[in-house]
Design a binder for these strands. Structure first.
Lengths: 152, 152
DNA sequence: CTAACTGCAAACCTTTTGCATTGAC
DNA sequence: GTCAATGCAAAAGGTTTGCAGTTAG
């Protein structure tokens, strides 16, 4: 959701030789304008608002395609709201998702974790990380009771 | 999968007041003996080998129960093998899952990440982490070509 | 022109649920 | 004995697929 990709996903898709259809333009618009994480159904509903003829299967197919190409990430946000999957345009900077298990709020604090962690893992294990997903469940500031706040 | 929990899950369940049925004993056995991460269907198949009368719904219900009680974790391992969910007994020490996007191998290097990270997140954001999931996709040592190995 | 993409509808797979029965405590 | 847990079967999600028609390059 950090939307500040200077080049639109559309450009990347074009550059990779994908055909640019009206439906794909619509879908990308929906993803780029999202103010929160959307599951496939929500993406579909928003896309249909812009283009009532767009079909659910197209949403799934395109989302899968972009996922396979590494252009969007699929999240499950600790399954706090059921087994839905959420999609976001692959951010250039790795970030954590903090999911409140009480109210469902999702925060995404920034940080230099990714490069550090990637280097560390590579060094320690020989594994070469390409993508990462990190989600923490817990209580957001607003959902912590006084007692919660005390037991650090 | 780090199986070395000195006290069996069964004891914890008993201590928390859950009824100990034959089916639950079977399911825990399956989880504790698993040599890799199992999805619900695989858990079901292995449980049925030990007790042919056990029902799928029981597996799902119990897995959900244990998940809600924080005794097992649900993983998706970067969706490398489709949208399956995998289950593991909640390890006492937080660990990362490294999932090879080529061969599907899963590594779990140890490390003191969890306490450090938990403290850092709490300090930086006010969020109080209770559970974490961290998965990295990439290439395991065996799947890296010489060129891969070079471009660190 | 042709391969890629889409809409449609049906199939698929996984998970959940209501209900009567069984069994743990 | 009582309430929780189970088996069963049906329903509910959510996602995928085959096919014929459409369209981008």
């Amino acid at each position: 959701m950090p939307v500040e990709s200077r080049t639109s996903l559309l450009d990347v898709m074009r550059a990779r030789g994908l055909r640019m259809t009206e439906q794909r333009r619509t879908l990308v618009e929906v993803l780029e304008c999202a103010e929160k994480h959307l599951d496939a159904d929500e993406v579909f509903r928003r896309a249909r608002e812009r283009d009532p003829s767009i079909h659910r299967a197209t949403i799934y197919r395109t989302l899968n395609l972009l996922k396979k190409m590494g252009l969007v990430d699929e999240l499950d946000l600790m399954h706090v709201a059921g087994d839905r999957h959420y999609y976001e345009i692959r951010p250039s900077v790795f970030h954590i998702h903090l999911v409140c298990t009480r109210c469902g709020a999702v925060e995404e604090p920034g940080g230099p974790f990714w490069e550090e962690l990637k280097a560390k893992v590579r060094r320690d294990t020989g594994f070469r990380p390409e993508a990462a997903r990190m989600e923490m469940g817990g209580l957001c500031r607003d959902c912590q009771s006084p007692e919660d706040a005390i037991r650090a």
